[in-house]
C-alpha cells in the first residue's frame, strides 16, 4: 500500500488530506491525532506524511495507538516518511505512541524536519522490539533536522532484536525498548551532557552541535523508557531554571 497524506497548519486554521491508511483527526486547537489502520504497516507499504507549520502557528501531533509494524508478503520493508517544515516562530510538538516492530518485520522510518531558525521542535520516538515474548524485527530510523538551513542532526538508529551484533554490546545492549526525545530550535537552555544507568534503564542527555539536545534511553519496558525520557527532560528544565535564577 502506498499513501501520501498532508497536513498544513496556519495560525487559526488547519487543513489536511487523509490518504488511507493514514488518517488525521483534530483533537483540540492546534492539535491533531494520527490514526493508522490497525495491524500495519506491513512490509511493502510506503506511507508518507508532509507537514507544514506556518509562521507563528503551533501544532501538536499525537497518535491514537501504537504503530505495529508487521512482516509483509515479500521481502520489502515497510516504510514511513515524515517531512515537516516549521516556519518562523512556529512550534511543532510531535509525540506519537510507540512503534512495535514485530518479529520478522523490517520497518524503516525517515523523519525530516526543517526548522526556521526561530522555530521550535520537540520530537519523541519510541521503538519496542517485538511484542512481549518475541525477539522483534528490524528497525531503521533516520532522523534529519536542519535549523535555519544548517544541518543539526542526521542520525540513523538501527535496531534488530534477532541480530546478536545489533542487540549486543555495541548495539542496544540487550534492551528491548529504545526511546529518544529531541528538542531543537529557538530559546534552548544550555545543556550539559549527562547519563544515568540502572540495570533496567540507561538514559542520557546529549547536547548536539548546534541549537538542540537529544535525550536517549534504552530500557526493559516502554513505561521505564517513557519515564526515563521525561525525567531527563525535567532535569534539563530544572537545571535551566536554576541557572536562570542563579
Amino acid at each position: 500500500m502506498k499513501a501520501l497524506a498532508g497536513l498544513d497548519v496556519e495560525r487559526g486554521r488547519t487543513r489536511w488530506r487523509d490518504c488511507a491508511p493514514i488518517a488525521l483527526r483534530p483533537t483540540g486547537p492546534g492539535r491533531m491525532h494520527l490514526v493508522q489502520a490497525a495491524g500495519g504497516p506491513l512490509g511493502g507499504d510506503e506511507l508518507r506524511l508532509d507537514v507544514r507549520v506556518g509562521p507563528g502557528a503551533d501544532l501538536a501531533v499525537r497518535s491514537a495507538a501504537a504503530t505495529v509494524a508487521q512482516p509483509g508478503p515479500g521481502p520489502e520493508p515497510a516504510s514511513w516518511q515524515l517531512s515537516a517544515t516549521v516556519a518562523a516562530g512556529a512550534d511543532l510538538d510531535w509525540r506519537p505512541e510507540p512503534t512495535v516492530v514485530c518479529a520478522g518485520a523490517d520497518y524503516r522510518s525517515h523523519l525530516r524536519v526543517d526548522l526556521d531558525s526561530t522555530a521550535w521542535l520537540v520530537l519523541r520516538e519510541q521503538v519496542l522490539l517485538g511484542r512481549v515474548g518475541e525477539p522483534g524485527g528490524r528497525y531503521r530510523g533516520r532522523l534529519t533536522v536542519t535549523v535555519g538551513g544548517e544541518l543539526l542532526m542526521d542520525t540513523e538508529t538501527v535496531l534488530d532484536g534477532a541480530d546478536p551484533a545489533l542487540s549486543g554490546p555495541a548495539g542496544s545492549g540487550g534492551f528491548r525498548v529504545f526511546g529518544s526525545l529531541l528538542v531543537a530550535g529557538r530559546d534552548l537552555p544550555a545543556v550539559a551532557e549527562r547519563a544515568d544507568r540502572t540495570p533496567t534503564l540507561i538514559s542520557a542527555v546529549l547536547p548536539l552541535d548546534g541549537p538542540g539536545y537529544l535525550i536517549l534511553a534504552l530500557g526493559r519496558t516502554s513505561a521505564l523508557v517513557s519515564a526515563g525520557l521525561a525525567a531527563e527532560a525535567d532535569r534539563v528544565t530544572t537545571a535551566a531554571g536554576i541557572a536562570a535564577r542563579g
Partner: peptide, 22 residues
C-alpha cells in the same frame, strides 16, 4: 551532498560515551 553517507549511530554507544565523560 553528504546525505548519501551512512548516518548510523548505536544507542548504547552514545549513552555509555556520555557516562564515560562524567
Amino acid at each position: 551532498d553528504p546525505s548519501a553517507l551512512a548516518a548510523v549511530s548505536a544507542p548504547l554507544t552514545e549513552l555509555l560515551a556520555a557516562e564515560h565523560a562524567q
